[in-house]
Design a protein around this nucleic acid. Structure first.
Lengths: 196, 196
DNA sequence: GTCTATAGATGGATAGAC
DNA sequence: GTCTATCCATCTATAGAC
């Protein structure tokens, strides 16, 4: 089992997934395999050598774009000074455009997860991890800046998580839906609203 | 041109649209015409006698569920005492479950509007009206409770609109995505955050 | 207006050569 | 592993009888 082959397979998979991401961003998950095949420059046979089905491609792409947010949050946790909730959101959301490219794809994933169990599992899993990351960050800040003990801080964080996620989802939805959306202004309002 | 016929046509259109709504809620816009036909108990020929295409059915359903929110907001404006922003959101969002039934359908519409111009027009139009409704409501409250003149009140309202919409979108997304979502708790947090 | 039956087109997936 | 060619299921929309 030669090592090069294994790396090659993985690289091809990534290559296909990235082409699929471009197609899905442009046409939604309704994009055809022909679209993806055309974008990769490969052929049908080549694609199906790396993915069992279109469904598998969709799941791979969804995992790709949803997971990227978690790394940003974990990087924030590594800082010495705990970041305020408003700062956390600001970092996550400004990083979004850089990593995901098209926020509209996230709307596709959310919509699809309503009607398909495979996609739903991914969404639940990633949001579960996001909640954990937010909880640690918010609790750390509350402990440092509001003199709460660990239990109180975690409780305080827990209450804040849904609206924090909600504000993030609102940012994503509006940046995808409205070309005139003013991201910085939204973040300024979030800064006023959330603890800082 | 007999009046009964005109009423009949409209009733049939509504009947079909409501069946389509159920199908789209369950299977997304990927639901087939056969699904809708089966749900109505009618036949293909009957459907196409009332709608030119599946696309037209999708647009009708989308208008239906998006427009319902506006009535709630206008009802609020009719009250004597101006409602606080947090109260406005609370009313709109609790009314949502009652009127729309399945919030997941809204995620479908948002996602679809990314890739299709017809759907996008509807979304832009409805959100435009929602913004107008929010602006009037927020400005009225700011004028009454913060002693701002009309220009200042409108400016204050304008700044608040995106995050208010964002919080509403977050509520919709989370109630559609997470079965364990706690709506009242979310609204309580919103009450803390927004002016009241 | 509504039905049945079907045309016409699309798209996911595979077979078999290389 | 990759290519070309193609099968076959699916789905939208229509034709024509009633």
């Amino acid at each position: 089992m030669p090592k090069v082959t294994e790396q090659y397979r993985e690289a091809k998979r990534d290559e296909i997934a990235e082409a699929a991401l471009r197609c899905f961003a442009k046409k939604g998950f309704g994009a055809s395999m022909a679209d993806i095949i055309s974008d990769t420059g490969l052929s049908a046979g080549a694609i199906y050598g790396h993915f069992e089905s279109k469904h598998e491609v969709m799941l791979a792409v969804s995992r790709l774009i949803m997971a990227s947010r978690i790394h940003d949050l974990e990087a924030l946790y590594a800082l010495e000074r705990a970041a305020a909730p408003s700062e956390v959101l600001s970092r996550v959301l400004t990083g979004l455009a850089r990593d995901v490219g098209d926020p509209g794809l996230l709307l596709q994933v959310w919509g699809r997860s309503i009607v398909e169990t495979g996609m739903r599992s991914i969404v639940w899993e990633v949001f579960g991890e996001l909640r954990n990351a937010y909880r640690r960050l918010f609790a750390a800040w509350a402990a440092q800046n509001r003199g709460l003990d660990e239990t109180q801080a975690l409780e305080w964080a827990e209450d804040l998580i849904p609206v924090a996620i909600g504000l993030a989802q609102g940012y994503i939805a509006q940046s995808a839906l409205f070309p005139e959306f003013d991201g910085p202004a939204y973040l300024a309002s979030v800064h006023e609203l959330l603890p800082h």
